[in-house]
Design a binder for these strands. Structure first.
Lengths: 339, 339
DNA sequence: TATCTGGGTGTGAACGCTAACATGAGAGTG
DNA sequence: CACTCTCATGTTAGCGTTCACACCCAGATA
């Protein structure tokens, strides 16, 4: 087995094929004016030498890298990281590479740092999944000049493309189904303060809850974790409020809600209805299976690449909102008869 | 606000600071022999110009990119993608960049393709999370010459560093606790055939199950999803086997197991004990909370970077196995008295 | 026959950086 | 005081591509 210590270069291919390096370049870039015969010769030489084009050199010469940077916060693992892999596939199928940076804190300066690195790298574009307004702002500030797509429900100045899943629409569907079942006293377990999705979901709940008496229409803040949903439910039940339904801002917290109710001897949906959000893996097998709102990460990712490529091509900014769909299972039922 | 059409280059910084471009380079690379005064001048110029070093050019000149490619399969979302972000953080803290490629199929050629791309890019190293032996083999074949770390439980030729979480140890703990509680008839819901982790977990079960009568010690294959755990359980119960415990190869399938048992009116752990694997988000709030095996993705990621950097530095290959820990909750209990 | 056209090809110079060597000014040595 | 040695800096030549241009030779046109 021979060992090529330095990989072959374009010049090597050219020499073997008996042409100039520029001709090799033309073949590689599918330039029209290369004769079929030459093209064949060059391709043969490429094959025999096992030549691979050096992308760093190409990036230096052309100024673009075909790398896009994706920024995700990993505070809430489920959503973003699922989207990340989907974005990667969409990118790769279009000939782009994905570099990733995950944020561990909610400190906006960390986002700014990561963006700076992407820029150092010469990333052709940036997709930032911003779960807080501060992260969105920091991203825009740091990404000066580089085409950027914000996946966020936050407020963004004109001229920047944005994309998100319709949080308001999803939450509306959740509340609509509960109201349709006759519920008026609906408690809410919200996501953490400052989180944009949590904010939208909560404000829809606040607008749509029929019985606005805060003694019944309690809202307790969670942190997306199942445990926080459990604690929130215990708190609701200790508070003396007696809602007939609980709308949890995500499925993991809904798991905690279900467990707390189960421990207290309440059956779902007979004694209490529960609706979640996300259609998390396993939600179909919660006890009982969870009625929830599904977010289409696949569609999100496709749209993300599309918008980003538009931005890279200097086309005008657009905003796309992907619809969320209601998934009806059995955790939400008719309001119980008064006891 | 001024618009710099072409970003400033090293020469610009040098001109402003009144030194040569090489001196600027030295400052950037922390070369020792630069006087404090010059260093200061250069840093000032860098700041006023907003200079950022062009990493493509650097890569071309030095031959290394400080990019590492990470290959994950996204068939089973939970594990790998959690590990991905942790690896990214470990990498970034060491000055490396992470490019990611996710596999959508189990086709080994897709893995080979992705690896080739990483190599085109000049990745300094590759971390592949290989869930099948075929993926591991394809990775090694394609990564000729580039330092590679395989995160796998598969068989790997000497000279290649490997890393994994101790699947056998974890499964052993799961079986040990069940046996300690008096269970002898233990069914298994396995992961998909060909998956390395699934294989190890299953074979430990097979070795350790006390009652080896296949009529009781049933093994049903799932696909990691909650629904498959549900169906497997239904199948077990329809088969006439009467195990007193079920060991599910992951927590999501365990969710399905719990739901199926619940539907059939069996209570856990009174009528049946259940143990999962992974400590998935939400497992603490399953009904009842799931006894499971936790995998430390954080430790895995740190070790991954360490091993890969060793490989890049041409140090001898090593293999590290991260221990898995038992998390005792309430889904496993003493074997029920015969009815 | 002289002149244009244009497809196919080669030549040189970037791109922005680092490596290797060259230089010059002081400090230390005999 | 000539000699070396060190430190700080400058100079030159790549790294492997692509871009802009020059070139050549056929066939078409005048």
């Amino acid at each position: 087995m021979e060992i090529a210590h330095t990989p072959p270069t374009m010049a090597d291919v050219a020499a073997l094929a008996g042409v100039s390096h520029q001709t090799v370049s033309r073949v590689l870039n599918n330039h029209p004016s290369v004769s079929e015969k030459t093209r064949q010769k060059v391709n043969d030489s490429i094959a025999t030498l096992g030549y691979r084009r050096n992308l760093a050199a190409r990036a230096l010469a052309t100024g673009d890298t075909r790398i896009i940077g994706v920024l995700v916060s990993n505070t809430s693992l489920s959503g973003p990281s699922g989207a990340l892999l989907a974005i990667e596939q969409a990118a790769r199928s279009r000939g782009y590479w994905v570099a990733v940076a995950g944020l561990q804190s909610r400190d906006p300066s960390e986002a700014a740092d990561a963006i700076s690195h992407f820029i150092d790298f010469g990333a052709d574009g940036i997709i930032a999944i911003a779960q807080t307004q501060a992260a969105a702002d920091a991203t825009l500030k740091a990404s000066q000049g580089v085409p950027t797509l914000l996946v966020t429900s936050g407020v963004v100045p004109p001229g920047i493309s944005t994309l998100d899943i319709d949080q308001a629409g999803g939450a509306t569907q959740a509340m609509t189904i509960l109201r349709g079942l006759g519920h008026t006293r609906i408690a809410h377990v919200s996501g953490p303060e400052g989180d944009l999705h949590a904010g939208v979901r909560e404000s829809v709940w606040r607008e749509m809850v029929p019985d606005t008496d805060p003694a019944h229409s309690l809202c307790i803040e969670g942190d997306w974790s199942a445990g926080s949903g459990y604690r929130a439910t215990m708190q609701i039940m200790a508070s003396g409020a007696c809602p007939t339904a609980i709308f949890a801002a995500n499925d993991r917290m809904a798991f905690g809600v279900l467990r707390a109710l189960n421990e207290r001897g309440l059956t779902v949906p007979h004694d209490m209805s529960v609706v979640g959000f996300d259609d998390f893996e396993g939600s179909d097998c919660a006890i009982p299976p969870l009625t929830t709102i599904r977010q289409d990460h696949e569609a999100l990712s496709q749209a993300a690449m599309e918008l980003l490529l538009e931005a890279i091509a200097n086309q005008p900014a657009r905003a796309i909102r992907i619809p969320a769909t209601l998934v009806v299972r059995s955790s939400a039922g008719a309001v119980p008869r008064p006891r």
